[in-house]
């Protein structure tokens, strides 16, 4: 686990704010690094490394999160870093000025990496422009959730060997999903075919221009797919007329064995969690360990975040600076 010492770094960016703009080489580099940590994490001995010993990672979450925050915390601790968790209820603070104030305050304490989640698209980028340390996005609004896309890619790659030439169907609430957007970017960059399946109310305008074929019918959209990625449906969307009822949603867009019969026989089932059983996915399908890799995704999450923290926190790199220059 040594740092890449060649003249051109394999990951030449200070931050990880999104997947858009990353090259196949950069993505593969992060996935390769993650791969090594998967085996490490499975050891029944001490999982603690000293790669980031003495370095400081701050988890700055402006939006509630259990899974992502825990995953980053565990990843940082396994690398030996000191971790501070800050959860700021975004509803209780004024946005804009306060966000920058918070960033400046933290920056003065010289952390090495800031992991930031925010409910507004673009907020993580804004914050990254005001600090001197590396920033990893833990998800911003409906824009991007890069580590989720990476852990999804790692899960697929370990099962299928290669992402290229796979057909991946992403189903459900695309309009509000940062997971979908990051995955569309990553899968396209790596040469996979992306399909989106949802009622028209849950598909954002011109989404096909991001590199996806759009379907409004599960049976058609799932035809001969290699991978089925379900998205979480937020029931509170029902009041906003995105769909009439969970009963109707499940009938037409919930993943059942009946609909799954249209995919390739060995298609993998994925879900970023937390699941609404009986809304977007049938309980039996979710628990089908032959095909559902939902738990594996969680495992890959820690490895991917270790790789990202390690990469964004290079040793002896003193030329970091706020990227606003």
């Amino acid at each position: 686990m040594t740092q890449n010492k060649s003249d051109i770094p394999s990951y030449p960016h200070r931050d990880l704010l999104g997947i858009e703009g990353l090259s196949p080489i950069e993505i593969s580099f992060l996935l390769d690094r993650s791969e090594a940590f998967v085996e490490h994490n499975r050891q029944q001995t001490s999982k603690k490394l000293d790669t980031l010993y003495g370095r400081t990672v701050v988890n700055l979450f402006f939006e509630n999160s259990t899974r992502t925050r825990t995953s980053f915390e565990l990843a940082a601790k396994r690398l030996g870093a000191d971790v501070i968790n800050m959860t700021v209820e975004s509803s209780s603070i004024k946005k804009g000025e306060t966000l920058i104030d918070t960033a400046m305050t933290l920056n003065a304490m010289h952390p090495d990496v800031l992991v930031v989640r925010h409910s507004e698209s673009g907020a993580v980028k804004l914050l990254s422009e005001k600090v001197n340390c590396a920033v990893i996005s833990g998800g911003d609004g409906s824009h991007e959730h890069p580590t989720q896309a990476l852990l999804d890619a790692l899960t697929i790659r370990r099962r299928r060997g290669d992402l290229a030439a796979l057909t991946v169907a992403i189903c459900g609430d695309v309009v509000h999903s940062r997971v979908a957007r990051s995955n569309i970017h990553l899968l396209n960059t790596m040469g996979a075919q992306v399909r989106l399946i949802a009622p028209k109310t849950l598909l954002p305008t011109k989404i096909e221009t991001m590199g996806a074929t759009v379907y409004n019918n599960m049976e058609e959209g799932l035809k001969d797919c290699d991978i089925v990625m379900m998205l979480r449906l937020q029931k509170e969307r029902m009041q906003s007329n995105f769909f009439p009822s969970t009963r109707e949603y499940f009938h037409f867009f919930g993943l059942t064995y009946e609909k799954l019969a249209n995919t390739k026989p060995d298609a993998l089932i994925m879900h970023p969690g937390p699941m609404n059983r009986g809304v977007e996915i049938d309980s039996e399908v979710a628990d089908d360990y032959g095909r559902s890799v939902i738990r594996e995704q969680v495992e890959m999450g820690v490895a991917v975040r270790m790789a990202c923290l390690e990469t964004m926190c290079p040793i002896g790199n003193d030329d970091k600076g706020a990227s606003e220059s």
Binding site: P199, T201, N241
Partner: peptide
């Protein structure tokens, strides 16, 4: 107009 637009969007799904 919002409800009509959502209704048309949803209906055109089917």
């Amino acid at each position: 107009a919002k409800v009509m637009s959502q209704a048309m969007s949803y209906a055109s799904t089917f």
